[in-house]
Design a protein around this nucleic acid. Structure first.
Length: 732
DNA sequence: CCGCCCACGC
DNA sequence: GACGTACGTGGGCGGA
């Protein structure tokens, strides 16, 4: 063994593999990987460590550049441990036996499934991560009536089981079951293959209905929303406690990534079989899961279930330690089913309307093109910022010193161009062109493509583990950024309609929820009072900072006050404020100062958040959601400033997210319990959209407002505004 | 294929 | 003198 260890050459090879694997996973940038691969490495036989004579130098460079994550990865990469210590994985809090003896419990009876037990591979000595080849495991494909019967009997006697569905695609509404993997013990699990025929699969899954519906069995999974949606197609509703490792890790550290590969590497020091090894790279040549041999699929699928089962053990402890169990079990986990239901429901889209809108846009875009080419004296691609920059700043020389982007291109961003609008009429045309082109490509033409043929609805997907603050995000398509500010843009909202004439759309949104949250958290009486009196908060702020009666606040004063109010949430500077308003920099500075004098407790609250972050390394929301701020004590003022703004913003944005999530769960439960036909369809951060069955309208108006306003008790009332109509625009 | 620029929402 | 408002998704471009 000593000899092996002393084999520097082999270690260097492992190092290289590790760096490349890290780069592959996105843990290291390609550039850094290249640098690292070039760093000379020596092996210290005494400490069993690889050392890089130049590594300090490299580290110093990173330190200088504040590449915190890069330093961490750099250190991690160089911290190659001798094999003895690979049994306890580096970042895990609870050690997992990496060298597991041949599985014993239950192994005997499983030989009844037919065939002999697979030969358990001998653990290979590795210096890098463990893999399926280097770890003894018992993964079995269960077949035959008797096998299935015995398996299900075993399954039903468990209290906590991890399962993972394998399907023909990423979209759970279109995908069909290929198989299901189960694991309830580390390094051990089973795979059940499903036939191509939907009807046959439906019959097979009926055998598993008792398991999925068993309330006494906890179901563990990675991204359970996906599996829930797939099973829903086979009329299976999963019951019992749920444990989602992806969500668990999101609560443990929201800023990290939560895909299984990374989690396995980080917490189990284990590199799972990659999906590309199985079905190839993304693209037209990629195979379907259906094309993979049962043997390979068993190894792959059960490994996933096995890893997820092991990860759950780690995360349960970490959630407990961070006091996050309540948030996990009472908000995030119940929300999984709510979101699954909203996604399965979808919202109806009026594609004919969008088609005619597209035609109108086409004409207007063509007209603008002609005008722009005339003014430019040549044709070019207006949608190319690069070409546009050359036309505006080199050919037309609209300005002496054009602003440039960080890559040296001329900036043609909206704020830059509108500033120049008076210089040349081409500018306004370019801006209009941009607006219309965006509208057409992103919404008017793209949305009809996303309609699911069988439902005629758009089924967005809500991501529960993406936004670091606790907000949801929406994708495929994103329904959280449908235009509303411009008249032309908001027309798109007319295309979102009730499912049929018996329904009406109802939109309910929290009024100023983030400002209410900051008022409550800071206990700023002046602001609390304004909310309690139902005042227009921006006008009220304006009256106080400009020292005028509420009734005499001008439009401009209110606008400036509004900008400061939002600036407080995001942590704006005097420079930023003066950029956003007509105020000079000194006026902006004065306004901010007066603002803090008006709301002294707000200032105190802000600095207390920053102090807390400095002391603890994280901040929390109303529901004890944490956000770690690793840069809060950085020596680099810019990096530190960003962390300080996060220390203020994360609790506010995150608390507002907590509140609406609670409201969603409560409303969903009420709708289910009451057997209502009304469905919750969309969430847009502070707004919920419902498809209301007309006979239930009056009940819903009360129920929804009630549940939203009372989702969380703050020292300030929550106020919800509602409207309804024949489309989303009317309902807003 | 991926980074960049830009634009949409809250 | 530089820096300069949180959180997201997505389309089009253009270089590799």
């Amino acid at each position: 063994m000593e000899n092996l260890l002393a084999n520097t050459h082999e270690l260097k090879g492992k190092m290289k593999e590790k760096i490349e694997a890290n780069a592959e996973l996105g843990l290291l940038s390609k550039k850094l990987a290249t640098i690292l691969l070039d760093v000379p490495v020596e092996f210290d036989a005494k400490s069993f460590e690889l050392t890089a004579p130049d590594s300090e130098k490299v580290g110093a460079i990173f330190q200088d550049l504040e590449f915190k994550r890069l330093i961490d990865n750099f250190n991690k990469t160089f911290a190659v441990k001798p094999p003895e210590s690979t049994t306890s994985e580096p970042a895990a809090t609870t050690p997992t036996p990496a060298t597991n003896p041949t599985p014993q419990a239950g192994a005997g009876q499983f030989s009844l499934f037919g065939g002999d037990e697979p030969e358990v591979p001998v653990a290979a000595l590795t210096y890098g991560r463990e893999t399926a080849t280097s770890t003894p495991h018992f993964y079995q494909n269960v077949t035959g009536n008797l096998g299935l019967k015995l398996f299900i009997k075993q399954l039903m006697s468990q209290t906590s089981v991890c399962f993972d569905t394998e399907t023909t695609g990423l979209n759970p509404l279109k995908a069909k079951l290929v198989g299901i993997a189960f694991s309830w013990e580390a390094h051990k699990g089973f795979y059940i293959s499903f036939p191509e025929s939907f009807e046959e699969s439906q019959k097979l899954i009926e055998l598993f209905r008792p398991f999925f519906e068993a309330t006494h069995i906890e179901k563990i999974g990675q991204n359970l929303k996906y599996d829930l949606k797939v099973l829903h197609k086979y009329k299976i509703e999963v019951k019992g406690p749920l444990f989602d490792t992806m969500i668990a890790h999101y609560l443990i550290n929201a800023d990290m990534r939560h895909n299984m590969e990374v989690l396995a590497e980080t917490y189990l020091n284990y590199a799972p079989i990659s999906i590309t090894d199985l079905i190839g790279k993304k693209g037209k040549n990629q195979l379907s899961m259906r094309d993979v041999s049962i043997e390979k699929l068993t190894e792959y699928a059960v490994e996933d279930a096995d890893i997820t089962f092991q990860l759950a053990r780690h995360f349960k402890k970490e959630l407990t330690d961070a006091d996050s169990l309540k948030l996990f079990n009472e908000i995030e986990i119940p929300l999984v089913k709510v979101l699954a239901s909203m996604e399965l429901e979808g919202i109806k889209l009026d594609t004919d309307f969008l088609k005619s809108l597209s035609g109108d846009l086409n004409e207007d875009i063509a007209a603008l093109e002609t005008k722009i080419y005339e003014a430019a004296g040549e044709t070019f691609n207006i949608a190319s910022p690069k070409q546009l920059g050359v036309i505006l700043f080199e050919k037309l020389k609209l300005v002496e010193k054009p602003k440039k982007t960080k890559t040296g291109q001329y900036s043609t961003a909206e704020d830059v161009l509108s500033y120049l609008a008076k210089e040349h009429e081409i500018i306004q045309n370019v801006l209009d062109y941009r607006g219309l082109a965006k509208l057409k490509s992103t919404y008017v033409d793209a949305l009809p493509e996303q309609v699911l043929d069988v439902t005629g609805h758009i089924h967005t997907e809500y991501m529960q583990t993406v936004a670091a603050t606790g907000r949801l995000s929406s994708t495929n398509p994103n329904l959280q950024n449908i235009p509303i500010r411009t008249e032309r843009g908001r027309q798109v909202r007319k295309a979102f309609i009730p499912r049929n004439e018996e329904y009406v759309l109802l939109a309910a949104d929290y009024s100023q929820i983030e400002l209410r949250v900051i008022a409550a958290m800071s206990e700023e009486e002046t602001m609390l009072e304004a909310f309690k009196n139902g005042e227009d908060i921006h006008a009220s702020t304006a009256a106080k900072v400009f020292n005028v009666p509420l009734a005499e606040v001008t439009r401009e004063q209110r606008g400036n006050a509004k900008t400061v109010n939002f600036g407080i949430i995001y942590g704006v500077s005097a420079f930023g404020l003066s950029n956003q308003t007509d105020l000079s920099r000194s006026e902006a500075k004065e306004l901010i100062e007066t603002y803090y004098e008006t709301y002294p407790k707000l200032r105190k609250y802000i600095s207390s958040q920053v102090d807390f972050a400095r002391d603890h390394g994280y901040v929390t929301t109303l529901s004890n959601r944490r956000r770690y701020l690793k840069d809060i004590n950085s020596r680099n003022a810019i990096v530190r400033g960003a962390a300080e703004r996060n220390a203020v913003n994360a609790p506010i944005q995150g608390s507002a997210a907590d509140v609406i999530k609670i409201a969603m769960i409560n409303i969903y439960n009420k709708l289910e319990e009451g057997g209502f036909k009304t469905k919750m369809l969309l969430q847009v951060h502070d707004e919920l959209v419902f498809d209301v069955y007309k006979p239930e309208l009056e009940t819903m108006k009360v129920l929804i407002k009630q549940e939203m306003e009372n989702a969380y008790t703050l020292s300030v009332p929550l106020d919800v505004e509602m409207d309804m109509g024949e489309n989303w625009l009317e309902a807003h």
